[in-house]
Amino acid sequence: MNRVRIIGGEWRSRVLTFPSDADLRPTPDRVRETVFNWLGQDLSGKRCLDLFAGSGAMGLEAASRGAERVVMVESSPHVLKALKANLHKLGAEQVDLVAMDALKFLDSDKNRFDVIFLDPPYRLGLLPKLLSSLHLHLAQGGVVYLENDTSCALDANWVTWRKGQAGNVHYQLLKFKKDG
């Protein structure tokens, strides 16, 4: 089993376990710390979507920091089992775990979120398809956290608000440009 530590909020220093899987790369502590400095340490009242939940590091970090609701979407059965165990261990009642393919979730869900965490398996090349419809799920003033192994070219509808790099991890917060 692999381990990841929550770095802030109510569950600070709690260690979570997750299975080995080629597509699971928990966001490094240093990157999570930077991102939550950008977002603000207190996410009270925010609704968050962790679209490719994996280890759960980003969604659980948001819940630990007071997010009102966190939806975590994951399709792998063995990863879901670990996420369920971690949610139970933390007593994370504000987290909804959805066992579904991320693209199908976006097609079927009509909720809007203040923060969307987007860290799909790099090998699938899903970012262009995801970014073309993700704005439909963003609340007004919402942001998308995007993580990739390369610097990502964005279409004209998105603007990079903040960005950074740690080793091979390129990460940024995006805002959707409003029409007009």
Rank of each mutant, 00 (worst) to 15 (best):
D109S: 14
R69F: 05
L103C: 02
D96K: 07
A57H: 07
A92T: 01
K46L: 14
R69I: 08
A63L: 09
N111R: 15
K104S: 13
H135D: 13
Y122H: 15
E93P: 00
K89G: 00
G91M: 04
V73T: 00
L136P: 00
S133L: 11
R47Y: 11
S64A: 14
Q41S: 12
L80E: 04
S75E: 11
C48R: 10
D101N: 07
L130Y: 09
A63S: 14
V98L: 01
M58F: 09
K104H: 07
D119P: 13
F113V: 06
S108L: 14
A62E: 09
E74F: 03
F105D: 01
S64L: 12
R123Y: 01
K84F: 00
H78N: 12
L43I: 05
S75V: 05
G45K: 08
V70K: 06
C48S: 10
G66P: 12
S108H: 15
D50P: 05
S44T: 12
D42A: 10
G54V: 02
S132N: 15
L60P: 14
V95N: 11
L80C: 15
G56I: 04
M58E: 03
S108N: 13
S55A: 12
K46A: 13
S132R: 15
E61T: 07
S55N: 05
K104Y: 03
D114Y: 02
L97T: 04
L131Y: 03
L134S: 06
A102E: 01
A53W: 09
S55G: 14
L80N: 07
Q41W: 06
L49K: 10
L127A: 06
D101K: 04
V115H: 13
E61G: 13
F52I: 00
A63E: 09
F117H: 06
P121S: 12
P77G: 02
K110N: 07
L130W: 05
L127F: 08
G66C: 10
K89S: 07
Q94G: 06
D107E: 15
L134I: 10
G125V: 01
P121Q: 06
F52C: 05
E61D: 11
H137M: 04
A62S: 09
H135R: 11
H88N: 05
P120A: 05
A62C: 12
P77T: 03
G66N: 11
